[in-house]
């Protein structure tokens, strides 16, 4: 089989490039595909000649690289795996049918080897995709938990999106750290962007407020929309003596009053 790959190199490689280029549906140029596959072709050839050698390892590494980059570029799993499987078809079309049973058996072996490589590609692809998802989840977590300074001694925590334990933990830590760093006495947690409040979310909020209180700061929860107020009341969640306001502006006004600040209009001054 390695003999065939060598002797009919141009024909097989040409057909392989053609098949793969077709499969990428114009997202990669023929030139790109050709340079990628020429390298692979050389490695496959080497691996077949010397199955126990280092070339086999290099081949796997090269395949892993390719499938990782495909995964990041957004290729589908089929499109990625087909690139490997297409080699079988390219080789088959170039068999001249003169070898008889021996060539047939040889082709079966070759086919099994390619299948194995295809599966390895697939596995790397899946791993790469999982990595992408994990990275994105982490970025999302960082993005979605800002703590901003509203005024001297007043911090704002605008929460957007669903609150779960992991997020609340991040919010809680960031907020408490900033309270300590800036010496702020008030924190306004605005939940306008939180789509739903259930007992779990309420529990998280209460814990955050309690922790802030232990540190000597006061938390005001704002942005409780009518539907949410309804849900909270219906669920029987006790917010106890925690100050809640319907809008961020009310909460800010409350915090400013508490810090002994007064807002005057231009004419009063």
């Amino acid at each position: 089989m390695s003999h065939l790959l060598r002797s009919r190199r141009d024909a097989v490689l040409g057909r392989w490039v053609e098949l793969v280029t077709e499969g990428t549906r114009g997202r990669m140029t023929e030139g790109e595909v050709r340079s990628e596959l020429t390298e692979l072709y050389g490695l496959v050839e080497g691996a077949l000649t010397d199955p126990g050698g280092t070339t086999a390892g290099e081949l796997r590494a090269a395949l892993a690289d390719i499938s990782r980059s495909r995964a990041r570029q957004g290729f589908s799993p089929t499109e990625t795996a087909v690139a490997v499987f297409a080699l079988k078809r390219a080789v088959h079309e170039n068999l001249d049918g003169t070898g008889g049973d021996a060539a047939y058996a040889d082709f079966i072996d070759f086919s099994a080897y390619i299948d194995e490589l295809g599966l390895a590609t697939f596995e790397t692809y899946a791993n790469a995709r999982e990595q992408v998802i994990a990275d994105q989840a982490e970025q999302l977590l960082e993005l979605s938990t800002p703590v901003v300074k509203l005024w001297d001694g007043i911090l704002g925590v605008p929460l957007v999106g669903t609150l779960d334990s992991a997020r609340t933990q991040v919010v809680m830590e960031t907020m408490l750290q900033l309270l300590a760093d800036t010496g702020s006495r008030y924190a306004v947690i605005d939940i306008t962007g939180v789509p739903a409040v259930d007992t779990e979310v309420a529990q998280h909020l209460l814990k955050t407020v309690m922790a802030a209180r232990l540190m000597g700061a006061e938390c005001v929860i704002s942005g409780i929309r009518p539907q949410i107020a309804h849900t909270i009341a219906a669920l029987g969640i006790e917010f106890g003596d925690i100050v809640t306001k319907s809008s961020l502006a009310d909460a800010l006004a409350y915090a400013m009053r508490g810090s002994g600040l007064r807002v005057l209009s231009g004419t009063d001054a």
Binding site: M172, E173, Q177, L179, S184, M210, R213, L214, M215, G216
Partner: peptide
């Protein structure tokens, strides 16, 4: 005074609310 965030979180997780104690940053 001066309770660290990590300590505050721990106390809340332990369910202690330090009744009757006043706190400051």
């Amino acid at each position: 005074v001066g309770m660290r965030p990590a300590v505050a979180i721990t106390l809340v997780e332990l369910g202690l609310s330090l009744d009757g104690v006043r706190t400051a940053l």
